[in-house]
């Protein structure tokens, strides 16, 4: 392994995050905090408890997941798109770096950024309401795997995009809807049967459900099924990425 090379990609990406912390870290935290205030404190006070937790508490894991996956995706997709756009990708492609090292460098940096944002959101949520975490180790696993999976997915999007428009197309058209329909604001079980079934093809449902179980110990989907499906989705992304790098699709002419 070229550890120094992998670390150099990682550090360069982290420097990029901390060079503009307002945009990369603070702004997603503030946006999520607004959801707490509007949906949790204002509207949530009118809603009865869901499986033993207040509505405010109920939406916290979902909002954390939503921030994790959107930020992880945007960090890695812009991380690879930018050097492709300005041409500096040449220094990575001509260096003795394996595909695995390049992928890990970008995705681990994006995952780190997302986990920092997720932790900050949790801390901010604590200002509004107490939120116990019943299974902290599982919570970390669900958060990490989700962020990592979406970092991989983001890398695919960043490579596939050859315009800024395409780069923002996926998050706007697919990721945000999937996240909103993934059960951030409601348990899947309150939906009509058809919509419940449709929801089950949305991978975000399992991610949110998994984290919610780690927090409160109850949820509408078996956490083992959630974990398995997240890993399946992760492996799909890994497979796609290795194929992209092997063929050089949109990277090497």
């Amino acid at each position: 392994m070229n550890w120094i090379g992998l670390y150099t990609i990682y550090r360069k990406e982290m420097n990029r995050t901390f060079a503009i912390p307002l945009q990369t870290v603070l702004s997603p935290v503030i946006t999520t905090a607004l959801y707490f205030i509007v949906f949790g404190a204002a509207i949530g006070s009118q809603i009865t408890q869901i499986s033993g937790v207040t509505y405010m508490q109920f939406i916290v894991p979902g909002l954390i997941m939503m921030a994790l996956l959107t930020n992880s995706l945007s960090a890695s997709s812009s991380g690879i798109y930018f050097p492709k756009f300005i041409g500096t990708i040449y220094e990575i492609l001509s260096a003795p770096l394996s595909h695995l090292e390049i992928i890990l460098g970008y995705t681990l940096a994006a995952t780190t950024r997302a986990l920092i944002i997720g932790s900050l959101i949790y801390i901010v949520a604590l200002l509004f309401t107490p939120i116990p975490i019943m299974h902290p180790v599982y919570a970390f696993f669900f958060a990490f795997l989700t962020a990592f999976t979406f970092a991989l997915f983001g890398l695919i999007i960043g490579i596939w995009s050859d315009t800024f428009e395409k780069l923002s197309l996926f998050p706007a058209l697919i990721i945000t809807p999937l996240a909103f329909l993934g059960g951030v604001f409601y348990p899947i079980s309150i939906l009509p049967p058809l919509w419940q079934t449709l929801s089950l093809i949305n991978p975000v449902v399992y991610m949110i459900s998994g984290l919610r179980w780690s927090f409160f110990g109850t949820t509408d989907i078996n956490p083992q099924i959630s974990l398995t499906l997240i890993i399946v989705f992760l492996l799909l992304c890994v497979g796609t990425l290795f194929m992209i790098f092997r063929t050089g699709y949109k990277i090497r002419d």
């Binding site: 550890w3 120094i4 090379g5 150099t8 220094e91 990575i92 260096a95 003795p96």
Partner: peptide, 8 residues
């Protein structure tokens, strides 16, 4: 960075 990518 250029040196780092080369693992040096």
């Amino acid at each position: 960075d250029a040196r780092g990518f080369f693992g040096k």
